[in-house]
Amino acid sequence: MAADYTLLLAAHDGNAWLRLYSWNPACLSFGRNEPALQRYDRERIARLGLDAVRRPTGGRAVWHSAEVTYAVAAPADTFGSLSETYAAVHRLLANAVSRLGLAAGIAARPTAGHAGLGAGACFASPAGGEVVVDARKLIGSAQVRKAHAFLQHGSILLQDEQDVVSSITRGAAAAPLATSLSRALGRSISFEEVADVVAEEARSEWEGSWNESVCEPDPNLISRFADPAWTWKR
């Protein structure tokens, strides 16, 4: 989280980033304003030895394990308005998934309105505009806008292990409506294979000169996002 947020702050200088990464160890993340104390069993999370963090972006809980995590940080007007930005990033990801041989689509806005923050796992339902395959959510995303820059990050599932979120949910948990690349393709797929097609798609679709580097997070941000008072703020 600290690395992604570092990129958001740095985007105010006019540069843009696509970051692709994975998690070690696997980790649970909550949305910025999600009522985690009420919705999830903190003691059970501790007993199971699961790491947990709270994102600077919105939305609901995600189990980060077998996935490619992407983050795009750029000046706010890079792709136009907020909705144009949201659409541009998802279109790029859908095109990348199509390169793998899958028919990826963009979810329509739910006619019944969006599920609230207390509704449980992120992958329990696609929000309008998110990437779906066979009407099931493949990529869960969230965006934050700060002053004149935005950060959008999300999870491209290699395997569907989102039932971990259900297992630590208090009360009834909605059945996840997720899919994964390995399920949709009928074969296993590596982090590298997916990261490569996303990077290739970005290089071909997004103008500019690309340089590869490793993101060094701001140490102050590491402390902030590691603080249990932030993770369990509500």
């Binding site: 972006t57 907020l82 969006h114 934050v144």
Partner: peptide, 11 residues
């Protein structure tokens, strides 16, 4: 303050 919606959290 901040506002959270389906597409983004904004200041």
């Amino acid at each position: 303050g901040t506002i959270e919606a389906v597409k983004a959290v904004s200041e």
